[in-house]
Write a protein that binds this DNA or RNA. Structure first.
Lengths: 209, 209
DNA sequence: TGCACGATCACACATTTGTGTGATTGTCTG
DNA sequence: CAGACAATCACACAAATGTGTGATCGTGCA
């Protein structure tokens, strides 16, 4: 059973090149190719596609929007963005929309087949430049500051976790089977350690740590 | 100028295998190999290493901790985790610690050289199984909920941004040149739209949106 | 054995917040 | 032009929060 691939790409030359590449390779079959997002959106759900190669820059609806819509209809399809854009914004938007891979068009054709297989097996093929951008956002969102939350005891962390869900002292106390006064005691220490003076500040430090 | 590589790996066989692989390849040179994190931590800063291959499971200090410490000392070195662990927790911890790549040990040796080059050129080599885990966390953290924060007006967003920094009503008013009463008015509408009843809940929705 | 420290609880008081009930002004749109 | 709506401000009162100043109990460690 070959891997069924569909293509959405507006440049004829590239689209035909990819179609030829896929059809002439053992184990791969191109089951459809479209020059715009609208056609792809209408036809792809009927095809037995396993993997879709999606260009981002398309005439009307862009490829990211197209993935978003298709993914909600047929979540089993794996989408690989195939594009020239290297900026973080487009990468993240694509991944959020449900794409599992993101490749630059300058990827050598031979590699593309490998990536398609990867995606089909549940991997997330990414050019390593792209992966770096993703990793960086990861590092920014998590690492960054000295992280004072590290000095908190297990119990204090537990309290803070509940605080970060918006519960009042009383509610937290009820859930942890302690009095609200105790919760306040813990909070006092937490504020001291985090050097803050309100729930909100504490929660911000906790969530963005 | 070859790429200088150092290795931290406790299994003699693997360490020697990697050393041989690197030294027998054009353009690569192994400038050091260590059987534990402590030795690596002490020696690597003196070596002119470009890329370090780091095992995670080491006798005393683990590889993630070792990367964290080395990265603060010599941030120009690129670290690639080379391990058997495939669980999200270790992957994320490594990336947060400053690793730029994460490869599974079952990666074919030939590929490893390619990955080292990738890392050296500023990429983030990752086995596609690993990339998938990273992408998934990305999708979870961003996508997900209906995002009620979308309905907020520009001004309301501004207020919320300040609120999320932990300022009191008075402080926010001063910064935006409006009275604290007005801030309270805005907050009232914000709470309504977000369906919450406290600053903390609002901030949580805002930060995790 | 003694002491530091985390976890628990209590009371008091000032401040901040959440919310009900208003009002005024400007802008945009059908 | 009327009506919707965002932005501004005011007053009042109850509830929640922040903080000072205590106490008790258990566990680990020097």
């Amino acid at each position: 059973m070959p891997i069924n691939v569909a293509i959405v790409e507006d440049k004829n030359e590239i689209r035909e090149g990819l179609t030829f590449l896929i059809n002439s390779s053992e184990g791969y079959r191109c089951v459809g190719s479209f020059g715009n997002a609208e056609d792809g959106l209408a036809q792809i759900p009927q095809l037995k596609a396993d993997v879709v190669l999606m260009d981002i820059n398309l005439p009307k609806m862009n490829g990211i929007e197209c993935v978003r819509k298709l993914k909600t209809k047929k979540s089993s399809i794996q989408f690989i963005m195939l594009t020239v854009y290297e900026d973080s914004e487009r990468i993240f938007e694509s991944l959020k929309a449900g794409a599992s891979g993101y490749l630059l068009k300058r990827t050598p054709p031979a590699k593309i087949l490998e990536w398609i297989g990867d995606a089909h097996r549940g991997g997330s093929p990414m050019s390593s430049e792209i992966a770096r951008k993703v990793v960086q956002s990861f590092q920014k969102n998590t690492h960054a500051s000295p992280d004072e939350t590290a000095q908190l005891s297990a119990r204090e962390n537990e309290i803070l976790t509940h605080l970060a869900k918006g519960f009042t002292y009383k509610e937290i106390g009820d859930q942890l089977f302690i009095s609200s006064e105790t919760v306040r005691s813990h909070l006092r220490r937490i504020y001291e350690k985090l050097q803050v003076h309100s729930r909100t500040e504490a929660v911000v430090k906790f969530l963005t740590r």
